[in-house]
Amino acid sequence: MPGIPALTESTYYILLSLHRPRHGYGIMQQTEELSGGRVRLAAGTLYGALNTLCDKGWIVLKTVDEDSRRKEYQLTDKGREILINEVKRLKELARNGEMVLGEEL
């Protein structure tokens, strides 16, 4: 997967949270939970990122539930592929770090 730029931490956690369809606030909660409170997505940042990811076709808006009127987002096949490649890239980074620093870690 050469040539695919690294995802930002926000993008990474948004895609990861959308492993299962969620609405905006659900993504914020899931990100905070997954990262043990370290990564917090602010609403303005998330809103902009969701629009960009929809435009890119990495995620889609699911049919809006008439009752809740809340929008749910879902990962597309393309989005899933990008996420998987990113995890592979991160593994490589961690592996190289461990190889070089070894016992210092």
Partner: peptide
């Protein structure tokens, strides 16, 4: 909870 509108540099720049 903490209330911010932006949580990364990219979105601060686009603001």
């Amino acid at each position: 909870g903490v209330f911010d509108l932006y949580s990364d540099i990219d979105s601060r720049i686009s603001h």
